[in-house]
Design a protein around this nucleic acid. Structure first.
Length: 422
RNA sequence: GGAGAGGUGGCCGAGUGGCCGAAGGCGGCCGCUUGCUAAGCGGCAGAGGGUUAACAGCCCUCCGAGGGUUCGAAUCCCUCCCUCUCCGCCA
């Protein structure tokens, strides 16, 4: 949620920044301004009435104690009541409308973010690793996985439909090894491991920005009004919702392995083959809750922490900075890490690291008391460290041999307890 | 799932219809005092919002959430959420 005061004081600035995401957004700002103005004018009137009512009620108390008659005053207060109730009703209505609009406005892009429309305009920041030369035609991971008997798409579909896959044998083992390897690495960097609920209440998803706008993308358990988490970012970031933290508690570094559940409503034709885009996939997530002054430094560090996983695995990647038009709803700035897929001859997203500044904190009401005793919103960051399924796919492709077997990356050998998958 | 108890400020905890935004304690901040990482004394301090040049003053709202009763609700009533105890069930 944006700061309503900023919208009030610098409406044109806010509109300009939002327009770099989407040209239709400035209209929402006008809507906010109008509703806010209305809200405040009602509020002033309402508060005056309430002040007067309170005064008279108090007077009744005094007079009663002296045994005096108060029926005249009581009648007066009763009249106030009707006017107050009518105004309260109107106030609630306007307030609720205002909130609804506010919740649908995305975060302002940071000034450093390149302006652009879509992923075409993203800017490459750096590359790492040598692309391996294959003296044969590298196969896509789904072919490798099927012939090794570790990825079973047919039975996955039988159990749960398309975009569900069964991972078997050495594949399952490799995936589990990846999860442990990633967690161990992040823990060694000071992240605290969390095992959160996978089902959460609607307001939790509102806190991180998935609701109300992206209801379609979520699995919902209707009977209990709970949602399956689309990413561990949701429970991790919300961990301190409603709390006032101590300044010295910051920064907080969290990591968690969870499956992620996504309906992928808007991506029908995309990546139908393989395990790039699944309804359920494993991910190790990184979340930071930090002091506002340090959040951009922390974003750089967080991105490097995610990158390190790929470096240690020896997988070539590049980092791109998302342009304004490609930025996610809650993010002020995002780096995507993309790993090399030989069969596709291109880099594919494997991690997304974002600074949300105080956008989520405002929705969750997570604050800290600064040295002057003031309560301020924290800044929140999140990043994949990494998407495990995609990492598995990348390993299959980058470490494949002509004979169809797949080497196990050096750092994983102790975890997998094998050098070669065959 | 059944029975019971309870949700009050950073924490603990008192408060059953008006002088309660809330005693007291702990913790915090400021000052004084004491020559020894402490103690004593005094003072300050809840959150959100409106008005405003103002972090001054004034006002409004908030005692789990939402309704209701009343001139007036932390206090009475209803619904929901959550926590705890016991029983049941269960990995």
């Amino acid at each position: 949620m944006l700061d309503i005061e900023l919208i009030r004081k610098k409406p044109n600035f806010v509109k300009e920044r939002l327009a770099t995401r989407d040209k239709s957004l400035p209209e929402l700002v006008d809507e906010v301004l109008e509703l806010d103005k209305k809200r405040r004018s009602i509020l002033v009137e309402l508060e005056n009435l309430r002040a007067e009512r309170n005064k008279k009620s108090k007077e009744i108390g005094f007079l009663r104690r002296e045994g005096k008659d108060t029926s005249d005053l009581e009648r007066q207060v009763k009249e106030f009541k009707e006017r107050i109730e009518a105004l309260e009703e109107e106030f609630r209505r306007v307030q609720e409308n205002l909130r609804k609009v506010m919740l649908r406005i995305p975060n302002l892009p940071h000034e450093s973010v390149p302006v652009g429309e879509d992923e075409e305009d993203n800017v490459e920041v750096r590359r790492w690793g040598e692309l391996k030369e294959f003296n044969f035609e590298p196969k896509p991971h789904w072919e490798i996985g099927e012939s090794l008997g570790i990825l079973d798409f047919e039975r996955g579909a039988r159990l749960a439909g398309s975009r569900f896959t069964v991972v078997k044998g050495w594949g399952a083992r490799l995936e589990r090894a990846l999860i442990n390897f990633m967690l161990d690495l992040h823990i060694s960097k000071g992240y605290k491991e969390i095992l959160p609920p996978h089902l959460v209440r609607p307001e939790i998803l509102e806190g991180t920005g998935q609701l109300p706008k992206f209801e379609e993308d979520l699995y919902r358990c209707e009977r209990d009004d709970l949602y399956l988490i689309p990413t561990a970012e949701v429970p991790l970031t919300n961990l301190f919702r409603g709390e006032i933290l101590k300044e010295e508690d910051l920064p907080i570094y969290l990591t968690a392995y969870t499956p992620c559940y996504r309906r992928e409503a808007g991506s029908h034709g995309k990546d139908i083959r393989g395990i790039i885009r699944q309804h359920q996939f494993n991910k190790v997530e990184l979340v930071k809750i930090v002091h506002p002054e340090t959040s951009y430094e922390e974003l750089e560090k967080l991105t490097l922490d995610a990158e390190e996983v790929l470096r240690l695995l020896g997988l070539p990647y590049r980092v791109v900075e998302l342009c304004t038009g490609d930025l996610g709803f809650s993010a002020a700035k995002t780096y995507d890490i993309e790993v090399w897929f030989p069969s596709q001859g291109r880099y594919r997203e494997i991690s997304s690291c974002s600074n949300c500044e105080d956008f989520q904190a405002r929705r969750m009401n997570t604050r800290f008391k600064d040295s002057s005793g003031k309560n301020r919103f924290v800044h929140t960051l999140n990043g994949s460290g990494l998407a495990v399924g995609r990492t598995l796919a990348a390993i299959l492709e980058n470490y494949q041999r002509e004979d169809g077997k797949v080497e196990v990356p050096e750092v994983l050998r102790d975890y997998v307890k094998a050098d070669l998958i065959e």
